[in-house]
Each structure stands twice: as structure tokens, then as C-alpha cells.
């Protein structure tokens, strides 16, 4: 087998696709220039629309998806990606939990008209924003808004070569306390670290800002007891709920259950 072809057959082929997003997660990858070539050296990026003018190929191994699904066209795209790729990695809150675009899911029908008088054709057939995982099965996730580059590299290698890396389930507070930050609740401010899954090293509380929950709700979080603590500190549960909805739709209509129902129909 000629060298070029052999290389092709053993080098994993990767595509990177952006849906409704701010491009920030893709940018986090390109921003680590100094390591980018090292990482890219082991894989072949066969399609990355953000950085090149080559068209998307018909076959590849891994699809990296950024962004939420907000129209029928992107819904089709992710289904197609699922068919072609053996591994799907979603990156960033937009793709994982619907993130910031997901804020618009509530009362979605009225929203386009608040921005446009006539909805431009170019917008496609708009649907309420949803996570990629609510449309197709996802193999790996990289959380946060934006993602952390090193975590992305870890997940990518796990997708390519396998790993016994276990998902963290503890809440942020464990990491925050290790950093010896003063808790925001003691200062009379709501912080979502209480229910958010750890892994970002309590990035925001360590810089003087409460956590907004971009990493998603921890599987071991107890929302009810968190609300009780909010009351205990004399703070507003409504405000807590509202903050939570920023990155985490608690409305099951768009978190997967509904999609499964739709599918069954």
C-alpha cells in the first residue's frame, strides 16, 4: 500500500461542524495554537468549515459538533453526521444542554416576531432550540461555555483511543472549597456551584463571580435541598430558578424526553 494511502487508512478522520452558536468553542480549539499542531498531527481534520474552503467529505471517523439545533436543516445535519461518523463529540453548553440558545425555547413561537417583521427565508425552518443529544445519540461531551481546550484534547483522545476516564458527578462546591474561596452565600449572593457538576476548578467563584452553571447540573445535585438552602440564606428561589434556566432548561420538553416521544410517533 503506498505510504499516503496507508497513512490515510490509519489516521482518524475528523470533521468539525458548527450549528447555532457563538463559535467560541471552536475558537477555544484554534486559540491554543501552540498545541494545535501537536494535536492535529495525530488526526486528519478532513472538514473544518471555519478554517478552510474544502467541502465536507462523505466518510470520516469522528464528528465534533458545536452549537444548538435551532432549525430543521441543522436537525437533518446532525442526523446525517450520526449516520456517517462512528463517534460523535458535542462541545460546549450550546450542544450539550442547548445552553444560551436554549433560553429561547420557552414560548418559542412568539420570539422570531419580536426580532423580525417578516422572517427571512435565510433563517430556514426555525424550531425551538434544543441540544444535539436530544436529537441523536452522543458518545462524548465536552462541557462548559466555552469549553476548556485541555479537556477537549482529553475527550478527543478518549474518543479515538478509548479511556477508562470516569465522568465526575460531585458538585462544584468541592473544588471551590479546596481553593479556599469565601462562599457567595455567606456574602448574600446566589451561586449555582451548589448544583453544578464540578470539573472547571470553580473557575468563576475563584475570580470573584458566582457560578452560572454553564457546566450543567450535577447528577448528584439535589435541586430541592439547594432551594431550601437559598431560602435559609434569605435569598430568592425565583432568582435561583431563573439563573438555573440560563444554561439548563429544566423544561423536559426540550431535554430529550420530548424528542423520544416525537420519534415514537
Amino acid at each position: 500500500m503506498p505510504y499516503q494511502e496507508r497513512r490515510r487508512s490509519i489516521t482518524p478522520r475528523v470533521v468539525v461542524v458548527g450549528l447555532a452558536s457563538c463559535f467560541g468553542c471552536q475558537l477555544q480549539i484554534t486559540n491554543q495554537e501552540q498545541y494545535l499542531t501537536d494535536v492535529l498531527g495525530q488526526i486528519e481534520v478532513v472538514y473544518w468549515q471555519m478554517t478552510s474552503s474544502e467541502p465536507m467529505p462523505d466518510s470520516f471517523d469522528v464528528a465534533v459538533i458545536e452549537g444548538a439545533v435551532t432549525n430543521r436543516e441543522s436537525e437533518e445535519t446532525v442526523r446525517e453526521l450520526r449516520e456517517k461518523a462512528s463517534k460523535i463529540i458535542t462541545i460546549g453548553a450550546c450542544a450539550v444542554t442547548a445552553g444560551i440558545p436554549g433560553i429561547a425555547a420557552k414560548d418559542y413561537e412568539d420570539r422570531p416576531h419580536e426580532v423580525y417583521n417578516t422572517i427571512p427565508e435565510a433563517c430556514g425552518e426555525l424550531i425551538a432550540p434544543r441540544s444535539v443529544g436530544s436529537v441523536i445519540d452522543v458518545d462524548y461531551e465536552v462541557r462548559c461555555c466555552p469549553i476548556d481546550f485541555y479537556e477537549f484534547v482529553q475527550v478527543l483522545s478518549a474518543a479515538l483511543y478509548g479511556s477508562n476516564h470516569k465522568l465526575r458527578t460531585t458538585t462544584m462546591c468541592t473544588e471551590c472549597k479546596q481553593k479556599e474561596n469565601i462562599c457567595f452565600y455567606a456574602k448574600g449572593e446566589i451561586c449555582l456551584g451548589l448544583v453544578t457538576v464540578g470539573g472547571c476548578q470553580a473557575r468563576c467563584p475563584s475570580l470573584g463571580r458566582p457560578c452560572n452553571g454553564c457546566r450543567g447540573i450535577s447528577p448528584s445535585a439535589n435541586l430541592e435541598s439547594a432551594r431550601q438552602s437559598v431560602i435559609k440564606y434569605g435569598l430568592s428561589v425565583d432568582e435561583f430558578n431563573e439563573k438555573l434556566e440560563m444554561f439548563n432548561q429544566t423544561n423536559t420538553q426540550f431535554t430529550g424526553e420530548e424528542a423520544a416521544v416525537e420519534e415514537a410517533r
Binding site: L19, A20, R111, P112, E114, V115, L126
Partner: peptide, 12 residues
């Protein structure tokens, strides 16, 4: 043509 899906920030 801008074919980026709108996210409707003003309404968000």
C-alpha cells in the same frame, strides 16, 4: 446571504 441560524438574542 446570511444562512446562520438566528438565535434571537433580543428576545432572550
Amino acid at each position: 446571504n446570511i444562512v446562520e441560524p438566528a438565535r434571537l438574542f433580543e428576545s432572550m
